[in-house]
């Protein structure tokens, strides 16, 4: 008869859950590999393709995919594969920069609001309400109409539009933690307020930000491509994925491949990022629970 209640349950010490969770999932492994490839394309496109993405060759225009041109060529005879590879630099980096700006500014605003409370919180919260009362993409459009199209302006516009998302989560999290059992307990130890904040509130309040950023990165990349598609981002002949699709729309009847590969690149990148983000979130939540 096993009647021990108390020490019968002994969990494995310091389980390496993140590692096992990642390794046991094929989707996670494939996504990681694909993103590794995208990262290579972003930083060293020369390693992936030797073709020049900007080199036009009228003789070779609108060739279907072949061993010479894996993804075919576009209406100006440029190699679509090399354009997609070089496009990673723009499409991915625009998304990453925008989300980084949003995460930094948003976390800061959220923390200030959550910790200061009172009138400062009220002011920041109302401001966030107003900013988010404009739909993301439209807000970005309005900002661009002030600044004009371009890569940097696109990053700034998208970054500003995503600030409220981060600020809200961090603020709410700060509130929850400030009310939690362990902060209350820590108060009874006589810790000073700043010790309490730095030691117990801050790490938990921002713990989720990188995960949120990863999950939000996918939709930001899509939005960036959408705005570029509308002509608000990098201007031709820069091989940004969204801008490439805008050009391709006119040649769809005769050359489908121009309009397929950049879209595949966006979709696969976003799927891979989402899978990793979801996995990370699950692992994180698993570690929080009893």
């Amino acid at each position: 008869m096993s009647a021990s209640f108390d020490q019968s349950y002994v969990a494995p010490r310091r389980p390496r859950r993140i590692f096992t969770a990642f390794a046991s999932r094929p989707g996670v492994v494939l996504s990681s590999l694909f993103l590794l490839f995208v990262a290579t394309a972003t930083f060293w496109p020369q390693l992936v393709t030797t073709d020049n993405p900007l080199l036009a060759d009228p003789i070779k225009s609108q060739l279907p995919p072949s061993p010479d041109h894996w993804f075919g060529t576009d209406h100006l005879g440029r190699d679509v594969f090399s354009r997609v590879v070089y496009g990673a630099r723009y499409s991915v980096l625009i998304g990453v920069s925008a989300i980084a700006i949003a995460a930094l500014v948003g976390s800061f605003l959220g923390l200030v609001a959550g910790l200061a409370r009172g009138i400062i919180d009220e002011f920041i919260s109302r401001f966030l309400d107003v900013v988010s009362s404009f739909p993301d993409l439209l807000l970005a459009l309005v900002l661009i109409s002030f600044t004009g199209p371009g890569t940097v302006n696109l990053i700034l516009a998208l970054g500003v539009a995503s600030v409220p998302r981060f600020a809200r989560v961090v603020r709410a999290q700060t509130f929850v933690i400030a009310k939690s059992g362990y902060v209350e307990q820590a108060k009874t130890f006589g810790l000073a307020r700043h010790t309490l904040i730095i030691r117990h509130i801050l790490p938990h309040a921002i713990a989720q930000v990188p995960i949120l950023a990863t999950i939000g990165l996918g939709s930001t990349i899509i939005q960036a491509a959408g705005l570029s598609f509308l002509g608000m981002g990098p201007q031709p002949p820069i091989p940004e994925w969204g801008a490439m699709l805008a050009e391709a729309r006119n040649y769809l009847r005769v050359a489908w491949w121009i309009g397929v590969w950049p879209g595949v690149a966006i979709t696969l990148t976003v799927i891979a990022i989402s899978i990793l983000g979801k996995r990370w979130q699950l692992a994180f939540e698993g570690r929080r629970q009893a």
């Binding site: 939690s180 059992g181 362990y182 209350e184 307990q185 820590a186 009874t188 130890f189 006589g190 030691r199 117990h200 790490p203 938990h204 570690r287 929080r288 009893a290």
Partner: peptide, 18 residues
């Protein structure tokens, strides 16, 4: 503060999970 200490109902939530 060290004069008095608290034992809460839900011990788990009174611990910083980190």
């Amino acid at each position: 503060r060290s004069i008095m200490q608290l034992i809460a109902q839900d011990a788990f939530s009174s611990f910083d999970p980190r």
